[in-house]
Amino acid sequence: MKLTIPEEEIMGHGHLACQGCGGALAMRYTLKTLGRNTVLSVPACCWSVIDGPFPHSAVNIPVFHTAFEAAASTASGIKAGFEIQGKDVNVVAWAGDGGTYDIGIQALSGAAERNDDILYICYDNEAYMNTGVQRSGSTPLKAWTTTTPVAHPKDRPKKDLISIMAAHRMPYIATASVAYPEDLTEKLEKAKSIKGTRFLLIFSPCPPGWRADPKNTVKLARLAVETKVFNLLEIENGLDWRITKKIRKPKPVIEYLKLQGRFRHLTEDDVSLIQENVEKEWNILMNKVGE
């Protein structure tokens, strides 16, 4: 049988990610596809720890650790530095959801508006996991975190970052999931071939932060797609929306929710509310896709 994703391992083992880390899987796929002529600008996020302590590093390509809000701007600087020296390198901003949806959105928006030639990848685990599970703009409705305790779970839906990015009319935006590595590597290949700012959101479950069994990381990522909680899509030039993984018979959200301790407190009403929200978001998305 053939391998369905690139064979070469660039990311090394021995890294400090938790068991079953979706963010580690996302990095592994990304490096496999982008290859060694790649540089990462990494703001404060799980990966600032996962990569290992000075003077060690797990990824075997250059990593530039930068300030929390500065993944995109640092990447823009790195790209300009290479360009003026005549070097053609894939420059990637590699940030978590806190560094993307929240504190880093200004620099990201600036880079996208200028259309700087960088690939921005957010590995989205839906909370500030590195600091111990605090809510971010990406945390979903009704989820528990340490700052949205069970008595007061998150009262706002996950920020629709993809629409914000689409509003920049940037050349390429995609969502991907660690459960669909072939789709992910295809999107990375495409992103790599395009000039300008490209944005990729990789859905990356976090077993400790989601209070989930590490063995279920890929299963959860798949269920998120099968329940339409997280949709796999591509947007070209901010206007041309396309679903890349069509779900014929979506599963009820409870199948996804019940495997996660962060949703253990949900009442039946809560589950219905989440289901309604999923339908509503799906309809909004369908309008954009034009189906």
């Binding site: 640092t74 300009a80 530095g81």
Partner: peptide, 21 residues
């Protein structure tokens, strides 16, 4: 680089300088 803030001016400067520019 016409950055959108001074914070980004400095971080872009740091990134560029780290490449040897």
């Amino acid at each position: 680089i016409k950055v959108e803030s001074e914070h980004s001016a400095m971080t872009a400067s740091i990134g560029a300088s780290a490449t040897g520019a």
